[in-house]
Amino acid sequence: MSYSSKNLFSYKTVFVESTDNIQLELIFSIGRNNIPNIKLPPLLFVHGLYHAAWCWENFLGWFASRGFDCFAVSLRGHGNSTKIESKDSSWTLEQYAEDVSSVVTYLYANTLSKPIIIGHAMGGAICQKYLESSFERITSCVLLCSIPPTGSIHSLPYWISNTPATLFALLLRSSYLLISTPERAQKSFFSSNIPQDLLNEYHSKFETTVNTKVNMQTLTTFVDVKKIMKEKNFSSSMIIIGGEKDCIIPIDAVEKLGKTYGGIKVNIVRDVAHDVMLEVKWEDVAMVILKRIQEKLMEKCAKIY
């Protein structure tokens, strides 16, 4: 299989209004569904720390070519969404969840379908926060290398041993140090086989304003798991995926995430690090997501019939 950071699908951009008069950048690619009488749910991709909607371009085209309408949001303070210098480092997890809610409402109004939300890392934490009160508004939720609901503090020893800049970042309370150079970004987010030109390209797009408030919120328990688990279909709707070489959310944290949600099956993709959607082998990750989504959709169809 060949791997590429580009695809042939074009993207369009709209802006969706969230709370606090925030305008959210939403890039999208419309799917080509060649299966008659089958309507697939739209996919909504939610980025994590340092990123924006741009980081999903590989996945948008790939999934669109398989029939899904694909959307990626830039959360407030990121990408081309509204930026407020005095607030971008202190938006709360709840406010980011409101951004997701606003986009889900927009998608349902325009597609009449409940989306599948896919959150990466901090985006996974935001999706979990959103699910506390809004599980019934989605078809499924995919957590990619996501912070577990009990917080990231348990992974700190692993981070420090694998990314030396972590200790200095903690002492100076500036987590941007983890990715302040392409070399540091590679150690934190990517496998060693990423081409230098791609690494430089991605690093140039990273956000330099870091939300310290959300970092602190997600150090310890930040979501009420019982509120999510009380939803009757939650266990058949959750998908959890991690990367074998991820030094930010290691394998044991991914497995703990599955156990916390009642023993949900997790998938670990070989030879990929934290930024699974930008890695050289991003297509392997996309294939796992597709297969798991197909499983969930088939399960739902079986229950109906």
Results as ranks from 00 to 15, higher is better:
145 C>I: 06
165 A>E: 08
201 E>G: 05
11 Y>I: 07
77 G>Y: 09
92 T>Y: 12
147 I>T: 14
229 M>Q: 15
285 V>D: 02
56 W>S: 09
2 S>V: 09
14 V>S: 09
89 S>H: 13
180 S>G: 05
243 G>A: 05
40 L>V: 04
210 V>N: 09
33 N>V: 06
2 S>D: 09
157 P>N: 07
18 S>P: 01
18 S>A: 12
63 F>L: 06
177 L>D: 11
15 F>I: 08
85 E>P: 04
48 G>P: 12
39 K>D: 11
36 P>F: 08
24 L>T: 07
153 I>G: 01
126 I>S: 09
215 N>Q: 11
205 K>I: 05
182 P>L: 06
212 T>S: 14
124 G>Y: 00
267 N>E: 00
74 S>I: 12
18 S>Y: 06
67 G>M: 07
259 K>Q: 10
159 W>L: 11
281 K>M: 10
94 E>N: 15
149 P>N: 10
201 E>A: 12
138 I>W: 02
214 V>A: 10
171 L>Q: 11
134 S>N: 15
149 P>I: 05
211 N>K: 03
16 V>D: 01
54 W>D: 08
143 L>Q: 06
104 V>W: 03
98 E>S: 15
261 Y>N: 05
216 M>A: 12
154 H>R: 14
280 V>A: 04
48 G>W: 11
253 A>V: 03
272 V>Q: 01
196 Q>T: 11
70 C>S: 15
239 I>G: 00
70 C>W: 01
189 F>P: 00
215 N>L: 14
101 S>I: 04
291 K>V: 02
279 E>V: 04
270 R>D: 00
270 R>K: 15
179 I>G: 12
38 I>H: 02
148 P>Y: 04
113 S>G: 07
222 F>V: 09
240 I>S: 01
230 K>H: 09
238 M>R: 04
15 F>N: 08
289 I>F: 02
128 Q>W: 06
189 F>K: 00
166 T>L: 03
207 E>M: 06
192 S>D: 12
210 V>T: 13
142 V>F: 05
118 I>N: 08
133 S>N: 14
273 A>N: 05
162 N>M: 11
101 S>T: 12
186 Q>R: 15
88 D>W: 07
272 V>E: 00
226 K>T: 14
115 P>Y: 13
190 F>C: 02
61 G>C: 08
95 Q>K: 15
91 W>C: 07
26 L>W: 03
251 I>M: 01
157 P>D: 02
146 S>I: 02
215 N>T: 07
160 I>H: 03
52 A>F: 07
56 W>N: 07
279 E>K: 01
73 V>I: 15
154 H>Y: 11
163 T>N: 13
131 L>G: 02
170 L>D: 13
283 E>R: 14
296 K>T: 12
278 L>Y: 05
240 I>M: 03
31 G>Q: 09
67 G>Q: 07
228 I>G: 13
235 S>H: 10
101 S>E: 12
303 K>D: 08
171 L>F: 13
280 V>N: 01
211 N>L: 09
151 G>R: 10
98 E>Y: 09
222 F>C: 10
24 L>D: 02
269 V>H: 00
68 F>R: 10
277 M>R: 02
45 F>G: 01
190 F>Y: 15
65 S>K: 11
19 T>H: 13
217 Q>F: 08
223 V>K: 05
70 C>K: 02
219 L>Q: 15
7 N>C: 06
158 Y>E: 00
135 F>R: 14
29 S>L: 08
246 D>Q: 01
51 H>Q: 14
273 A>I: 00
243 G>M: 03
